[in-house]
Design a protein around this nucleic acid. Structure first.
Length: 385
DNA sequence: TCTGGGGTCCTAGGACCC
DNA sequence: TCTGGGGTCCTAGGACCC
């Protein structure tokens, strides 16, 4: 980057403890004055913490922790379910405000998005504070903003921006252009998005436990250890190199899934088949709502020992009805049960290879052959062309 | 401590085709 | 007869993210 001032200004916006804020807005009387708040699944039903207050975090609770464990750590905490209606409404409001302040905006999840700052937005820090204040004013939601020339650095910065005790963070953290290499050098390896538990252990076994240590390993050695893809990923990230693209598009959905963990593990295949019904209905409803059809159907079982097994089938023609999806899902379930008996804690159904149905209009366009052949025939023809 | 639910992406092997 | 290299699709499993 020869001219740092010409670097793209990317902001990563991340709502603070979103489910907690949504719970406070949903049940204001009930939660008034509550500092120890846990939001998530029912403790007796294998639920986990989806979000918790900063006070609960200080005691060691974190998201994805079993709710029962969290309640053991802080028995006086108030536990409430995720208020989905409020979450969805507030998310929409927040992103509407963000979009107005962005040259481009990419929504990553219900509580996180990247935006590209317009060139006339003024100094980055001031612009970020302006956006943060606008979201607070208009949606009543507090968020943290990280800014950098590279997406993953903006993401790390947004974590550092979170107002926490014993820091002077004020909700905005900017990595100045030109300071990328130095900034990432001070961060723990685990802060790099994409470096999870397994990756970290893999590196630690080889004596690499910091960004500085990773920089000392040449690319060829990393490739021997990790394979080419992860090697160049890590090689770049520890040098502050990553994507700077903010896409404005809504990426098309690639899969639709529904799964359920049972209160008690199930053994009978007939009982599992009974549980399959609502899952099929769920994915089928979503599929039709978004106006797509699916060519791949997949069933997943998780056994008591937490091992996942999955079986899927790709069809020559895309389908959309519960009857067809359900019939195939049942067959896949039986195939899985033939190979694996034992107790099952989770059952899931997923749809993939999603396709938009070919409309009558498209079929009547001149130059497009009528669908005399099957889709499969056409795919074969395309392959051999 | 006893582990949710919704996703995306990657890898590796095998089938099949040219 | 024995042998090749590349490409795409599919399956299964796993890592990772929020």
């Amino acid at each position: 980057m020869s001219d740092p001032s010409a670097a793209p200004r990317i902001l990563c916006c991340d709502i603070d403890a979103f489910y907690c804020q949504a719970a406070m807005l949903t049940w204001p009387e009930r939660l008034r004055g509550v500092d120890l708040l846990l939001v998530g699944g029912h403790p007796g039903r294998r639920g986990v913490v989806a979000s918790c207050s900063y006070e609960a975090r200080r005691l060691g609770v974190h998201s994805a922790m079993p709710m029962a464990t969290a309640l053991r750590i802080c028995p006086t905490a108030t536990a409430v379910p995720v208020p989905w209606a409020t979450v969805r409404r507030k998310s929409r409001e927040v992103f509407e405000v963000l979009r107005r302040h962005a040259a481009r905006m990419e929504r990553i999840s219900i509580d996180e998005g990247y935006l590209l700052l317009p060139e006339d937005a003024g100094p980055t820090r001031e612009a970020a504070h302006r956006i943060r204040d606008a979201v607070q004013q208009e949606a009543g939601i507090s968020l943290s903003i990280g800014g950098a020339s590279v997406r993953f650095l903006a993401k790390i910065a947004s974590g550092l921006a979170k107002p926490r005790p014993s820091t002077d963070a004020d909700g905005v953290f900017i990595v100045p252009p030109g300071a990328e290499y130095e900034f990432i050098g001070d961060q723990p390896l685990a802060e790099i998005p994409g470096v999870g538990r397994a990756f970290l252990q893999d590196l630690q076994r080889r004596g690499v436990s910091s960004v500085a240590a990773a920089r000392r390993i040449d690319l060829a050695t990393l490739a021997l250890w990790l394979g080419p893809a992860r090697a160049s990923f890590l090689y770049d990230r520890v040098r502050g190199i990553g994507s700077s693209t903010v896409s404005d598009g809504r990426e098309p959905r690639k899969s639709i899934s529904s799964e359920a963990t049972f209160e008690r593990d199930l053994y009978d295949t007939a009982a599992l088949e009974h549980e399959l019904g609502p899952l099929v209905a769920d994915v089928g409803r979503t599929l039709r709502k978004v106006g797509l059809r699916a060519r791949t159907i997949s069933v997943k079982l998780r056994s008591s020992d937490f091992r996942d097994r999955q079986r899927n089938r790709t069809l020559p023609e895309a389908v959309e009805t519960d009857a067809v999806i359900g019939g195939i899902a049942r067959a896949l379930l039986h195939e899985l049960r033939e190979r694996q008996v034992g107790y099952v804690r989770l059952l899931g159904v997923s749809l993939g290879s999603l396709e938009a149905p070919v409309s009558a209009e498209q079929l009547s366009l001149p130059g497009i052959a009528p669908p005399r052949e099957s889709d499969e025939d056409r795919r074969r023809a395309a392959r051999s062309a």
